[in-house]
Design a protein around this nucleic acid. Sequence first.
DNA 1: GGTAATATTTGAACATGTTCAAGAGGGGCA
DNA 2: TGCCCCTCTTGAACATGTTCAAATATTACC
Lengths: 236, 236
Amino acid sequence: MFKRGTEKVKDAAKPAGERTRELIFERALELFRVRGFEETTMRDIARAAKVATGATYYYFPSKEAIVSAYYDRVQSLHAARVQEELSGKEGLRARLGMVMHTKLEILQNDRMFLGALFRYTGEPGHQLSVFGKGAEAQRKQSTELFRQALDGSEVSEELKQFLPWVLWLAHLGIILFFIHDESESQAKTRKLVDGVLDLLTTLLEFTNSTLVRPFVKPLERRLLGMLREAGWAEER
Amino acid sequence: MFKRGTEKVKDAAKPAGERTRELIFERALELFRVRGFEETTMRDIARAAKVATGATYYYFPSKEAIVSAYYDRVQSLHAARVQEELSGKEGLRARLGMVMHTKLEILQNDRMFLGALFRYTGEPGHQLSVFGKGAEAQRKQSTELFRQALDGSEVSEELKQFLPWVLWLAHLGIILFFIHDESESQAKTRKLVDGVLDLLTTLLEFTNSTLVRPFVKPLERRLLGMLREAGWAEER
DNA sequence: GGTAATATTTGAACATGTTCAAGAGGGGCA
DNA sequence: TGCCCCTCTTGAACATGTTCAAATATTACC
């Protein structure tokens, strides 16, 4: 599909279309932010980018795909932030808090159109379903961040295998809550994140205490087995 | 909007439109089942019901609203089933299992278009958002079923206050899993339900043991406080 | 039964996401 | 320079959800 040869010859100069793509992309996001996703039409976007109506479809397969591309960028911004701040940050609670809160910071101004990300959640075959094939790489990258946050902390081998995935799932829920949260600066979501993480930390410490460890260990095994059986294991 | 007077006079005979509504409704569901939600057009539905294209909108405000009406029916079927089977069924595990599994039974043949229910999950203002105002009555009724399942079991006052809501949330997640589950007869979902409930039951017993109760009690309080703060308390 | 009010039905028109055949532009190469 | 191929762009056309003013059927009431 791609001609490697031409790339080598012309390298420094961006392909001409690259600029158009970015133009469309940025204009679309601006409109989404101001008017919302629904209220922005593809014709609005094309007009704002000074291209023909159909041009957008040369770069994005659908309107939702623009939001999906935005989320790719979010993901990579987030990965960078996490990479940057994780080194030197000690303590599981602080590390997880950082991962969650930086994500929310990045999303802060875009709550208006984030809902579009969840539009195909219930449609398995769809390219843009959060749980579908198309988002597999995304999921992997995102769970990887949580896995890194766990590095160096005292959690059992079992937990290490599924906690990242559970945290990713929880983080999706938090984003949903965030979208619905009308409190000032979404303070309620921030509190919820802190509350959940405090509780999680407490629980982990509790389950690590010699008193209950013998009871908890088999439970962790069962949970792991259950999630594996549910098909979660397939994705590593 | 309604004339109470006329209702009293003419009661036995259904309004003429009622039959049209049902016709449209049933034909729509048939098509959704066979072709799926996306692939069925409003024109298809109207044609199948032998009415004009626009007629559907006299009875349903949108295409998704048909699925929403379907879900209303599911809800009421479910409530009936639960009412019927709950009396005489002893043991929390069995009672919860019944509630979950009967729900899945009712949904079994309609997985193809259930996804439409989740389409507006991320859009707070939307009438059909699962978490929005429009579904408040639904949520209340559904959580009420779980509350009833808890009746007569040994769970703390704190847990009784939020477990039904947590179970409702979990049941939403299970429906999502169900939709994505391509295993034979969705056996994986059934296993997941059983696994989750077994684990929950074990956990509840564990937390009720005198050994750990002193530690667990404050945790329950914290969790309750957290959920209240997150705004969950508003809905009773 | 007749009549006015109300409920229902119609189908064209509209808005918008998406497709597509046709064309413009531009760079490599003889 | 002229030609070819590939990338990019265009805008009309299409499909489909939705709206609406007008027409028709039904009902309530005398």
